[in-house]
Amino acid sequence: MSVVDAAVRALREGGLIHLPTETVYGLGASASDPEAVIKVFEAKGRPRFNPLIVHVGGMALAERIGIFDDRARALAAAFWPGSLTLVVPVRDTGLVCDLARAGLDSVALRMPDHKMALDILRGLGAGVVAPSANRSGRPSPTTQRDAFEETGAFVQASPDGGDCQVGVESTVVSLLGDVRYLRAGAVTRAQIEAVVGALAQDEAEGHRSPGRMALHYAPDAPVKINVENPSVGAAYLAFGPVEHDGLVIQLSATRDLHEAAANLFKALREADRFTPPVIEIAPIPEDGVGEAINDRIRRAAGFVG
């Protein structure tokens, strides 16, 4: 039996899997099965009011699950498969259980840009919830090894789809009324606006997005951000050349924001394994995907979001 077939079988039997994607590794379960979804929350220790993203293998299924208007279709055409999640009104509540939607009348949908993920999703022919495969509040896994280290005890299949190429969770955009940018990711505000025009402020719909907890993506060591001169003994996540006698982990030696995004969670994990007294992170520009990186590191440091 292939690893894809094993993953599909596990999902059909109500089990959990690791779902490799281009963003992070997800902890996958059938979106229609509340007992399987409960297992996801239990494995992660995740608050049950936080809605889960439903991953789909094609537009036909997406439109069976949710109601797509012209704006939603335009965004899907521009960015799917890819790291963009669309929050739309739910059409068929039987395809995504109430627990997965946190009781909301909306659903968050994404088609990942990852061959193995799409093979699994299309093999199942149904939606799969797949929040990041870490324990709640921990850095998200971007390799199969890290996913297994976090939640391997809970899964029936853990296919290795290689290292994640994007490295931060998907951008989340709401299409409930005005278009709102709920969570920063690799698809930037400017890219969204190029398709649908100016965006509304996001505060009104923030509860509909995953990953909006204040303390999130946190390693065990305390985190300080925007540190230009690292302190003695600190593990330092650098962005560009730096002089530091302690542990230095480069997010990007060439100050490439996409490389930094792909390396972020891996770097946090690596730093944490050395049990430093503090993890300090270099300033990151807010341009483009830098907004998503700063969003994640602010949450890791415990700032509101």
Rank of each mutant, 00 (worst) to 15 (best):
T151S: 10
G152D: 06
A153G: 02
A153N: 05
F154A: 14
F154G: 03
V155K: 08
P159T: 01
P159A: 03
P159Q: 11
P159L: 05
D160R: 14
G161Q: 15
G162N: 09
G162S: 08
D163S: 09
D163G: 05
C164A: 09
C164I: 03
Q165M: 12
Q165L: 15
G167M: 10
G167A: 11
V168A: 10
V168W: 14
E169V: 04
E169P: 08
S170I: 07
T171P: 00
T171R: 04
T171S: 04
T171V: 06
V172N: 07
V173E: 07
V173T: 02
S174C: 06
L175E: 08
L176S: 13
L176C: 07
L176Y: 10
G177P: 11
G177Y: 12
D178L: 02
D178G: 04
V179C: 06
V179I: 04
V179K: 06
V179W: 09
Y181K: 06
Y181W: 08
Y181I: 01
L182K: 06
G185W: 10
G185Y: 12
V187Q: 10
T188D: 11
T188H: 11
T188F: 04
R189A: 00
A190F: 05
A194R: 10
A194S: 10
A194W: 02
V195N: 01
V195G: 06
G197V: 05
G197H: 13
G197F: 04
A198M: 05
L199Q: 05
L199F: 00
L199C: 00
A200G: 10
Q201L: 04
D202I: 02
E203A: 12
A204E: 15
A204N: 02
A204H: 13
E205C: 01
E205K: 11
H207R: 15
R208P: 00
S209T: 04
S209E: 00
P210S: 14
P210G: 02
R212F: 01
R212E: 00
M213P: 04
M213V: 06
M213A: 05
M213G: 07
A214L: 01
A214Q: 09
A214I: 00
L215Y: 08
Y217A: 06
D220H: 11
D220F: 05
D220M: 15
D220R: 15
D220V: 03
D220E: 15
A221D: 05
A221Q: 14
A221G: 09
A221S: 15
P222A: 07
P222D: 11
V223D: 07
K224E: 15
K224Y: 05
N226F: 02
N226L: 08
N226M: 03
V227S: 09
E228V: 12
E228N: 11
E228K: 12
P230V: 12
P230E: 15
S231R: 15
